[in-house]
């Protein structure tokens, strides 16, 4: 085993079978280790891991409100500093809704003040816990309960918000994107973020069988396809320099990723759906250009 054997996010949690988020948390906690305090905004992660009176966490874990996981993390870090504790890590966690929408103000404050906190965003691209409503991180054209396709609509009409760039724009020394399909890379990135003295941001792509509409066994395959099509780019940005880009030998067409998910099935049925598929391919092409993805 290349990864830390110890588990800090335990079995018995109530996540759906094949949950990408549960795997993301399990891996991120392996990178974080025993000497740590974690916060967690409202959302799937909080609900599945804290059915009272039980907890899935082996480390101190605190549920915040939806909007203040980062503020809570900031306060804990300041408290530890005041106690002279320079070893305990603080990890603030949130889903994409709790991070890029509702919690962005407190996240921005945490990054601006450069607290020694690793912020981990588990990105399943909608509000899954409350019933699959779109978030700022929902990709273009995805069907959610608040962005349904219809005669005048192809699904979510906005682009996926680039929270990594927003975090990096605060001038923090490290941001990274990761995927549950690449566990060693994910663990390396969270470890690196933890080792840096100052605020860091890691966003993990965590496919959701319930919200995206596919069978639980396909979670890893779908996470991998997001990377292989260039729709989710794996990279790190250290002191403004982009590094560790996962270059692709043979970038796959976006259809291979989209066609496996019910949230995009209207694109393959609707008239003019091919025009929309072209737009999504353009998003992947722009990513490829920006990050020089193609080998």
């Amino acid at each position: 085993m290349a990864l830390e054997e110890e588990e800090y996010f335990e079995s018995g949690h109530r996540a759906c079978a094949g949950c990408g988020l549960a795997l993301g948390a399990r891996l991120a906690m392996k990178a974080t280790g025993e000497d740590a305090i974690a916060t967690c905004s409202t959302g799937c992660l909080e609900v599945v891991s804290s059915p009272y009176p039980e907890s899935s966490w082996e480390i101190p874990w605190i549920h915040s409100l939806f909007e203040n996981s980062a503020a809570l993390g900031s306060g804990i870090e300041a408290g530890l500093k005041a106690q002279g504790n320079d070893h305990t890590k603080v990890v603030a966690q949130g889903g994409d809704g709790g991070t890029v929408d509702i919690g962005i103000r407190s996240l921005s404050g945490m990054l601006e003040r450069n607290h020694d906190v690793t912020y981990v965003c588990y990105d399943n691209e909608a509000y899954m816990n409350t019933g699959i409503q779109r978030s700022g991180s929902t990709p273009y054209d995805a069907s959610t309960t608040t962005s349904p396709p219809g005669t005048e609509s192809y699904g979510n009409e906005n682009r996926k918000k680039d929270a990594l760039e927003i975090a990096a724009a605060h001038g923090i020394s490290y941001v990274a994107s990761a995927s549950i399909a690449f566990p060693s890379d994910l663990v390396d990135k969270v470890k690196k973020a933890n080792e840096i003295n100052g605020a860091t941001y890691v966003q993990i792509h965590t496919p959701c069988p319930t919200g995206w509409g596919y069978e639980g066994k396909e979670t890893i395959e779908i996470a991998r396809l997001a990377v292989e099509t260039g729709l989710w780019v794996l990279y790190g940005k250290k002191d403004g320099e982009i590094q560790n880009i996962n270059k692709l030998n043979d970038r796959k067409p976006v259809e291979e990723y989209l066609k496996k998910q019910k949230r995009f099935k209207h694109l393959f049925k609707k008239e003019d759906g091919s025009k929309e598929l072209e737009k999504i391919q353009n998003i992947a092409d722009r990513n490829a250009e920006k990050f020089s993805l193609d080998k």
């Binding site: 018995g12 949690h13 891991s49 804290s50 009176p53 039980e54 907890s55 480390i59």
Partner: peptide, 19 residues
Amino acid sequence: AGIAEPGSTKNYKTGTWRT
């Protein structure tokens, strides 16, 4: 009121969900 035993979801056997 919310203090819980670390790792105590292990007391709940999710294996019963399995098909």
